[in-house]
Design a protein around this nucleic acid. Structure first.
Lengths: 339, 339
DNA sequence: ACTGCGATGATATACGAATGTCAACATAAT
DNA sequence: ATTATGTTGACATTCGTATATCATCGCAGT
């Protein structure tokens, strides 16, 4: 483990270079104000003793940390992984670091994560969804920096919202299925607890149905547990198709179960879309490459992450004080062949 | 945005509660040493004014941050996302936070990330792979805390290694393919730059081949660019199958291109494993659910993350000072039907 | 010789919490 | 009454860096 010495400080650099503490400090923060030769001496000494600035101390004084707190419900879902990737890409080039918290869709864990972000002087906070605990809202509203709520759009954003209209996306797809002539459309949705997206998608579906004068058969509205899996989609699908009066179309509000259902049909010889049509929500990389490419709602997860991070850096730079409070990244109805 | 006041300090709690600063501080750190009633007064005041302890200041004096730095090559790959998820799960329950850096497989970006981890007084550092820049090695060896290198096993670990034997995993699968009777085995590997795993897998393949007295046709050794995509796998596969003497088995050293290739065969009516066998490396959720389930090397990505994090917390607790320097999480050869 | 400027240094203070020493007081045990 | 113990407070210092003020010194332009 090499050196067992304590970590080096600016004072050590000063000693090693024979320059005063202030000059060293200036050489780092205001390189223009010291002579080129002096600067070189400082850099040489830094290199020599292996000095790494203590960013904690810097944060304490500046009350800025160059860290952005990000909360995602789960990482092992490619949607949120892509989202985090998008955030990371933007932060990377701005020399900002990402403090990542995983909430597992629990508002308590989210609150805990947000609290530590605030305690660590994070410069901004990006969270998923609009569902928060009371104490989380309190902490966030006392927080000075930019706050971005992502993945959905609501009027009551705390500060900034970056996402897309889940209600509209869901009703658009539902309307397409109706127009396409499907008679019995099943809905496989998510769980409502702590998930405003699932609620909005459900509402979008119901709105489109009633708007078209269609009643919804309660037995055709099913929800799968979180986190979603291919297996749960497969099971739901096989259950549905084994019934006396099966649906002729199934709208999955999550892509993973849709894939599970799709593959189950493929294995069982149930033809898509002839016997049953499948529509998804998410559009993962696999979806367009399936033998019968999947019709689905494309979510721009990486873009949500990027735009959220861009809002943050814009605000930190002082631009856009009031603008960009609401960023709609949109969605796309990908009409392919499965429905 | 609620309160535009500056963030609250311990002094504010002291003022609000009518207790002295030290008592408040003690109530938080050594609750046993203050009376229950006093403690309650402190908590009430904290609640009232919305005090959140400044962890930056705490870190500065304790020179511990409760943050663990983690570097992954990319997040939008389910292997690394699962890995990060595993790390996060363990850190969560230990009240540690994750500082996440994305290296994009560049040693420079990795170095930069590691440097900021050190500067932020991270308590431990977890990196991917054994390929680092010189300055990264220097910074790491001056770093006082635990360092975990993951996803592979090598003798020259800086501190702790958590992973599996890529050479052996690759040669095991190759041997299986040879024994299974495949005559012309193609290899679709990754790029070697900054990727010790790709190198080891290649070496494992070559070793098993020469051990069996089999020569390797250079035209059947192909590499796909990083990051890997389904499309690149599809293209390689279609190219291979269009040749005069196509292979009868293809060993993909990454799962995503294997899936792309698989789906291309499915669409083109190329039967698996009769016309061509496919073996993968990774075992994603999709692999066992394909119509012809895929034979592949199962990597325990989430477990690598969990174990790495567990090593870290054990060391931070002072346990295992010397033990657990090398953790082999193993792999599994999943014999299914595609080969 | 004058001012003005650029580069460097000396010294002090601040950031928010942790921590060590010592004092003040109340209550309990002797 | 004396000593011991528990609770609270006052004060000072520390962590590593940023920053403000003021002092030097050398050198160019007047």
């Amino acid at each position: 483990m090499g050196n067992s010495n304590r970590t080096k400080t600016l004072k050590d650099v000063s000693r090693a270079s024979g320059l005063s503490l202030i000059t060293v400090s200036r050489a780092l923060r205001l390189p223009e104000t010291v002579q080129a030769e002096t600067r070189a001496r400082v850099y040489r000494a830094i290199e020599e003793i292996g000095y790494v600035p203590n960013l904690t101390a810097r944060s304490l004084v500046s009350s800025r940390s160059n860290m952005i707190g990000v909360v995602v419900p789960i990482l092992s879902s490619s949607l949120f992984a892509d989202f985090a990737q998008g955030v990371a890409a933007v932060l990377q080039r701005e020399k900002l670091q990402m403090l990542l918290g995983v909430s597992e869709r629990s508002v308590e864990l989210e609150t805990e994560a947000v609290r530590t972000f605030v305690g660590r002087q994070a410069d901004a906070i990006i969270v998923t969804g609009f569902t928060h605990s009371e104490s989380c809202r309190t902490v966030l509203s006392d927080f000075g920096g930019p706050i971005v709520e992502t993945w959905n759009l609501r009027d009551d954003a705390i500060d900034i919202a970056v996402g897309y209209d889940n209600v509209k996306a869901s009703s658009d797809m539902t309307r397409y299925l109706i127009e396409k002539g499907y008679r019995e459309i099943a809905l496989v949705g998510g769980q409502f607890g702590n998930n405003d997206q699932a609620v909005d998608r459900y509402n979008g579906f119901m709105a489109a149905m009633s708007e078209a004068g269609r009643s919804v058969r309660p037995d055709l509205v099913i929800s799968v547990p979180t986190p979603t899996t291919m297996e749960s989609g497969r099971d739901v699908m096989l259950d549905l198709m084994a019934r006396r009066n099966p649906p002729d179309a199934v709208f999955f509000h999550a892509e993973i179960p849709a894939h599970g259902a799709y593959l189950a049909c493929l294995s069982q010889g149930i033809s898509i879309p002839e016997t049953v049509a499948i529509a998804g929500f998410g559009d993962l990389k696999l979806s367009p490459l399936l033998p019968v490419p999947m019709t689905t709602v494309k979510i721009k997860s990486e873009e949500i992450g990027r735009r959220a991070a861009e809002c943050v850096v814009a605000r930190l730079r002082g631009e856009d004080e009031e603008a960009g409070r609401m960023v709609d990244v949109g969605y796309e109805i990908m009409i392919r062949e499965s429905a």
